[in-house]
Simulated assay, not measured.
Amino acid sequence: MRVVFESRDVDGAQMRDLSLERVRFALRRLTTFVPNAKVQFSDVNGPRGGVDKRCQLELKTDTAGTVVIASLARDWRTALDRSLIRATRVLTRSLQRTHKPTRGRVAKPALDTGSGNAL
Rank of each mutant, 00 (worst) to 15 (best):
L18I: 04
L20N: 05
L20W: 01
E21V: 05
E21Q: 05
R22D: 03
R22G: 02
R22S: 08
V23F: 00
V23W: 00
V23G: 00
V23M: 01
V23H: 00
R24Y: 00
R24K: 01
R24C: 00
F25M: 02
A26G: 00
L27T: 00
R28D: 05
R29H: 09
R29M: 03
L30W: 05
L30N: 03
L30S: 04
T31Y: 04
T31V: 01
T32K: 10
T32Y: 08
F33Y: 15
F33E: 15
F33D: 14
V34Q: 06
V34E: 05
P35N: 08
N36P: 07
N36S: 10
N36E: 14
N36A: 10
N36D: 14
N36Q: 12
A37Q: 09
A37N: 08
K38H: 09
V39E: 03
V39N: 03
V39R: 02
F41S: 02
S42K: 10
S42F: 07
S42C: 09
D43P: 13
D43S: 11
D43V: 09
D43N: 12
V44W: 14
V44H: 15
N45I: 10
N45C: 12
G46A: 03
G46S: 02
P47M: 12
P47F: 14
P47D: 09
R48L: 11
R48V: 10
R48Q: 11
G49T: 12
G49H: 11
G50W: 07
V51L: 14
V51D: 14
D52G: 14
D52H: 13
K53I: 07
K53M: 08
R54I: 06
R54G: 01
Q56K: 03
Q56R: 06
Q56Y: 00
Q56T: 04
L57K: 06
L57Q: 08
L57C: 06
L57N: 09
L57H: 09
E58W: 01
E58N: 02
E58M: 05
E58I: 06
E58K: 02
L59Y: 08
L59R: 06
K60D: 13
K60H: 13
K60S: 12
K60I: 09
K60V: 13
T61A: 01
T61P: 01
T61N: 00
T61I: 03
T61R: 01
D62T: 08
D62K: 09
D62L: 09
D62W: 09
T63S: 12
T63E: 13
A64M: 07
A64I: 13
A64N: 05
A64P: 04
G65T: 15
G65P: 14
G65N: 14
T66A: 12
T66H: 05
T66D: 06
T66M: 12
V67F: 03
V67H: 05
V67G: 07
V67I: 15
V68H: 02
V68G: 03
V68Q: 06
V68W: 02
I69F: 11
A70Q: 04
A70L: 01
A70P: 02
A70F: 00
S71Y: 07
S71I: 02
S71M: 07
L72K: 11
L72F: 14
L72Q: 09
R74A: 15
R74L: 15
D75C: 11
D75S: 11
D75F: 06
D75Y: 06
D75P: 04
W76F: 13
W76Y: 13
W76C: 06
W76V: 08
R77T: 15
R77A: 15
R77P: 10
R77G: 14
T78K: 10
